[in-house]
Amino acid sequence: MLAALTLAAAGVRAQEPPPPAPDAAAQPAGAPWTFSATGYWNMPRESGDYLSGIFIAEKSQLHLEARANYEAKHSQSAFLGWSFSGGETVQFKATPIVGFVWGSTHGVIGGLEASVAYKKLDYYIEAEYLDPNGAEPGYLYAWSELGYRPIEWLRLGLVAQRTRIYGGDRDLQRGGFFQVTVRKVTAGFYWFNPGSHEQVAILSLGVSF
């Protein structure tokens, strides 16, 4: 998720966007819960490594999400969202979310997670705005991926994020990624700012159930 949209709002997370589902409104009322959990080992060149994580629970259009070390180190956040999806040749899914963060930073957050897919190409964007609290100014976090699947189990492409979690002068991080999926397990590698003093590598491992 890149060009103009990426430069306008590029986040903090390294999660594979789920393929857009059929229109959730058309699903039966008794649709089952689905869950996913993903851990990320972040390796900024100029600071210490750390672990972050995301847990998602969905039932029909209802979206629940919890995060750790996402908006800031030593912080936790929780969100409530509602999903809209559809399309055949071009599939899409959009989930407005609202929540709050506490810990080393705190405040109310509003955001959007969205994806669009066409054949082997897909684009995913996740953006959220942290409401200013006290001396802290408001801030727009964002994560963006443009992906391609040459074969079903391999996804690769370009990635960008806008975050202040790493410190330094560079808010906008850009690079590449690849992911490998075996059944319900996805492993990935993201490399931001390759070759620079501010490069960041991220290993991810996720499972859906």
Rank of each mutant, 00 (worst) to 15 (best):
Ala3Gly: 14
Ala4Thr: 13
Leu7Asp: 14
Ala14Leu: 06
Ala25Pro: 02
Ala25Cys: 07
Ala26Asn: 11
Gly30Phe: 03
Ala31Asp: 06
Ala31Trp: 01
Ala31His: 12
Trp33Pro: 04
Glu46Gln: 15
Ser47Leu: 05
Ser47Gly: 06
Gly48Leu: 04
Gly48Tyr: 12
Tyr50Asp: 09
Ile54Glu: 06
Ser60Arg: 15
Ala66Ile: 09
Tyr70Leu: 08
Glu71Tyr: 15
Ala72Cys: 13
His74Gln: 15
Ser83Leu: 12
Ser85Val: 02
Gly86Trp: 01
Val90Asp: 00
Gln91Val: 00
Gln91Asn: 09
Lys93Ser: 08
Ala94Tyr: 05
Ile97Thr: 09
Val101Arg: 04
Val101Thr: 15
Trp102Ile: 12
Gly103Tyr: 08
Ser104Thr: 11
Ser115Asn: 10
Ser115Tyr: 01
Lys119Glu: 12
Asp122Gly: 01
Tyr124Gly: 03
Ala127Phe: 01
Asp131Pro: 01
Gly134Tyr: 11
Gly138Trp: 13
Leu140Glu: 02
Trp143Gly: 02
Trp143Arg: 08
Trp143Cys: 03
Ser144Glu: 04
Gly147Trp: 00
Tyr148Glu: 03
Pro150His: 04
Glu152Ala: 12
Thr163Pro: 04
Thr163Phe: 07
Gly168Leu: 05
Asp169Thr: 07
Asp169Phe: 07
Leu172Arg: 07
Phe177Cys: 00
Gln179Ile: 03
Val182Asp: 13
Thr186Pro: 08
Tyr190Ala: 00
Trp191Val: 08
Glu198Trp: 10
